[in-house]
Simulated assay, not measured.
Amino acid sequence: MSKILGGGAFTMNQIIPKTALKITSGGEPSNYQYKGDSGKSVNCYYCPKCTTHIYHQQEVMGPDTIIARTALLPEARKKFEVGAEIYGKDKMSWEKEIATTFQTLPPS
């Protein structure tokens, strides 16, 4: 995995089946957990060597669905277009809307 970190207000993610993610280097991801807006757990997985966050698994979405940090992939940063903005409730007041915005997670 390339070591790409960002310090901006945004992340680029994609909701995918857990089976679609293949981690090819860096070892077994480390993780931590916190409670999401739903009151259910959010599991955050990151590289144990560089601490880059790789994906999140939200209990509310079920065990087989993850939110992958697609900005880690060079082709994603160049080719993927914004499909929606999630967690608009946390948006900074000066940010303009660039896609359909959901206040929390989109409906499943």
Rank of each mutant, 00 (worst) to 15 (best):
I98F: 08
A20C: 11
P48A: 03
T51A: 07
G39M: 08
T11K: 04
K89Y: 04
S30G: 10
A99M: 04
Q14M: 15
G6L: 10
L5S: 11
G62I: 00
G7T: 14
L5H: 15
L72D: 03
I66A: 01
L5M: 14
C44A: 03
G26W: 06
D64L: 08
F102L: 04
L73M: 06
E85K: 08
W94D: 15
A84T: 02
S30F: 05
G88S: 00
V60G: 01
D37P: 11
Q14V: 13
P17A: 12
F80M: 06
V60W: 06
V42L: 02
Y46A: 11
F102R: 03
N31M: 08
Q58T: 10
C44W: 02
S2A: 12
A68N: 04
T11I: 11
T51D: 00
R69G: 05
Q58W: 08
I86H: 05
Q58Y: 10
I86S: 01
W94C: 15
K78R: 07
C44M: 06
T52V: 00
S108T: 12
T100C: 07
I67C: 04
I15G: 03
L73V: 01
P107E: 14
P63V: 09
E28R: 10
M92L: 12
V60P: 02
S30N: 13
K40E: 01
E85C: 06
N43E: 14
G8D: 10
L5P: 12
T19P: 13
G27L: 07
